[in-house]
Design a binder for these strands. Structure first.
Lengths: 204, 204
DNA sequence: ACCTGAACACCGTTCAAGT
DNA sequence: ACCTGAACACCGTTCAAGT
């Protein structure tokens, strides 16, 4: 994970990892079934760093904290989102994570079926946002101005007026990533809350 | 794209693609700058298959059709979502796509800034859902029952009660993927509509 | 029980040489 | 203008051999 943090996930190679551990690549196979096993383990350990929802009565605040915490983990481990959502979440931490999230939703009044939908919808958004994010600000933060200028330059003159308008919007003021994330997060959470309020009276 | 559809994205290799085209791998470099260029082109051509929003007055229906259309493209090209959200969307079709979506949102009354947020939120969800989906039903449809049984088997006895409850829920009735997708999609679209209704009177 | 060295079957990419 | 053959520097993985 240190190696991936520092040099990117592509540099996580059996040979490079061995070099870092002072060992030959072949030796790693005494500790890991293969590279897939290694990456699964990394994904699970990243999942372990996401704050589990407390069993508060306030499910919405708990889900919100969890989502913001996940985004924080993705910021620290930029490889994590891509790894976690492209392989099976069968590690022990991932299982606990899923259980606690589902538990909080069920306790809030969602049926198991709807709770699983809510879980999928929230995580689709959380992971999806990170992967989109990593497209245009993969380097560091606050280089959105350059991106905006690049987009403007890439647009054939006169075409794509709406895209140009948006790029212009960001040409002078920076893009607030956290605000964008929470905008969508609250859309989903508010929608779930309204769904719960409308539905729970009919089936208690 | 045919090769990726049939044998998976991992089998898209310069050598394998050359073999399919009756040519050596090295010859491909006369037509493509490198493998990255090739994958970018594939992502852009997949984007071209997504139905563009018509310039109807009904932005919500247009966004909904677009999202469902994207999901259809992802079902046909299972490699598309992973490719499209992990590289820059600088191809001509991707640019047109972004312009049309932003245009529909701006015309609906969203400011350029909020329109870009709405675009990011919707696409985060659409791509994110597909990538989660491809985790447990990567083979075909309707094998959710096996997955549920596997999850149940993987859980240490007694622990993870909520996860077990959800798995039990799906052990006898199949998981309706389209319904789950549209559940979350409508949460977001309804939220955007409400946001628009609350906001637009104040700044017309 | 763990490590090494060498090998195998693969990659993406380059480049002189052909036509 | 396009293709080929050979090479280069890399991969993940296996396995006999060591300690």
């Amino acid at each position: 994970m240190d190696l991936a943090d520092e040099s990117g996930i592509d540099s996580v190679t059996m040979r490079e990892l061995g070099r870092r551990l002072g060992v030959e690549a072949a030796s790693l196979y005494n500790h890991v079934a293969g590279k897939d096993d290694l990456l699964n383990g990394m994904a699970d350990l990243a999942a372990a760093e996401i704050e589990l929802p407390s069993s508060d009565a306030d499910w919405k605040a708990a889900m919100r904290r969890r989502a913001v915490s996940a985004r924080g983990v993705f910021l620290q481990h930029r490889w994590a989102a891509g790894l976690m959502d492209s392989r099976e979440w069968s590690g022990p931490y991932s299982l606990s994570y899923a259980d606690r999230v589902l538990g909080a939703l069920i306790q809030a009044g969602f049926s198991p079926g709807i709770a699983s939908w809510a879980f999928i919808v929230l995580d689709s958004y959380i992971y999806g946002f990170e992967r989109q994010r990593s497209n245009f600000s993969q380097t560091d933060d606050a280089d959105t101005l350059e991106v905006a200028r690049d987009v403007l330059a890439a647009i054939p003159q006169g075409t794509h007026p709406s895209l140009a308008a948006v790029a212009m919007e960001y040409a002078d003021k920076p893009y607030d990533e956290a605000a964008a994330f929470e905008f969508g997060l609250d859309l989903i959470l508010d929608g779930l809350e309204r769904w719960l309020a409308a539905d729970s009276p009919t089936r208690p």
